[in-house]
Design a binder for these strands. Structure first.
Lengths: 141, 141
DNA sequence: GAAGTTATATTGTATGTACAAACAAAATTA
DNA sequence: TAATTTTGTTTGTACATACAATATAACTTC
C-alpha cells in the first residue's frame, strides 16, 4: 500500500514519537500526580525562585498563553505562587512544591532509565541531542 | 541556571520538535484548507478506497477514538464517506477529495522542501528514520 | 444455537497547546 | 508630560488527542 509518504515525513514521525514518549512519561510521572511538563515547570521554579513567566515559556518552548494556563493550574494546586512586579509575573515555589522535588526527580530518572533500556543509552542520548539541535533550527524558520 | 534536565530529556525534546514542525506543516498545508494529519488521512483513503478505520488508526498511529473524530470531520466536509460493514467501517474518498489530491501532494512536497532546506536533506532523512525506528520500539513498551 | 468472549467503533469527558485579541505596564519619542 | 510603541500577561476560543465507558457485531465454545 502507498503509505510511504508517512515514513519519510518529519512532521509525522516527530509527532508519532511525541505521542509514544508522552505516554511513557505520563506513566512514570503518575506517582507525582502531575504530568511531565508540570513536573519540569516546578523543577525550573524551584531551581530559580522568582523566575518570570516569560523566561519559563522560553525555557519550555511553549507560548506565553500556554504558560499562563500551566501556572494557573499549579497555583490552584498550591504548588506555586505568583508575585506581580510591574508588567512581569514572578513565580515562586511553595513548601508543598519543595517537598515534592525529590519525587519529581525520581520520576525523571525512571523515565530516562525506561527509554534508555528500550533504545540504548548511547542511541537515546544521541537522538535527544539531534532533536534539540533540529528544534532550535526549525524554531527560527 | 539548572535547566540541563530539559536538554537531556527525550520526552521534552521530542515534543518540542513536534511543536516546531507542526507549526511549519500547518503553514504549508494552509492552501489545502486542512491540517497535515487530515491531508495524510485523505491520501491514505485515496490510495486505498474502502480502507477500514482500524487500519487507518494503525497507519497514523492514533487511537481509534481519535480516528473516529477525524473521519467525523472529513465526512462533515464531504471529503470521505463511511460504509458500515458488520462491525467495521470502511472509508471512501469523495470526488471532492480526489480533486484535492494534487494540492495535498504539493503541500507535502513544500513542507519537505522547507525543512530540508533548514536541516539539510541528508540530516532530515536520517532524523526521520531514527524517529520512526524509535517510535516503533517505544510503542511496544 | 445460546452464552460468553473478542473486536470495532463511538461517545463523554478531559488535557495540552495555539492563535488572536485585549489589557496593563514600561519605555520611547515628540 | 502627553502620545505612541513595545513588552509581558491574560482571556476567549478552537483543535488534536487520549482514556474510560458503552454499544454493537462477530467469533468461539459448550
Amino acid at each position: 500500500m502507498d503509505d510511504g509518504f508517512l515514513h519519510t515525513c518529519l512532521f509525522f514521525t516527530a509527532n508519532r514519537l511525541g505521542r509514544a514518549i508522552t505516554k511513557m512519561a505520563e506513566e512514570e510521572f503518575a506517582p507525582t500526580g502531575l504530568t511531565p511538563m508540570y513536573g519540569y515547570l516546578i523543577r525550573l521554579v524551584i531551581g530559580a525562585p522568582g523566575i518570570s513567566q516569560k523566561e519559563l515559556a522560553e525555557k519550555l518552548s511553549v507560548t506565553p498563553s500556554t504558560l499562563t494556563r500551566f501556572v494557573d493550574k499549579l497555583e490552584a494546586k498550591r504548588l506555586v505562587e505568583r508575585k506581580v512586579q510591574g508588567k512581569t509575573v514572578l513565580v515562586y515555589p511553595t513548601d508543598k512544591a519543595k517537598e515534592m522535588e525529590e519525587t519529581i526527580r525520581q520520576a525523571s530518572r525512571s523515565l530516562k532509565a525506561r527509554y534508555e533500556a528500550v533504545l540504548g543509552v548511547e542511541a537515546a542520548q544521541h537522538l535527544t541531542k539531534e532533536l534539540e539541535d533540529s528544534s532550535i533550527s526549525l524554531e527560527k524558520h
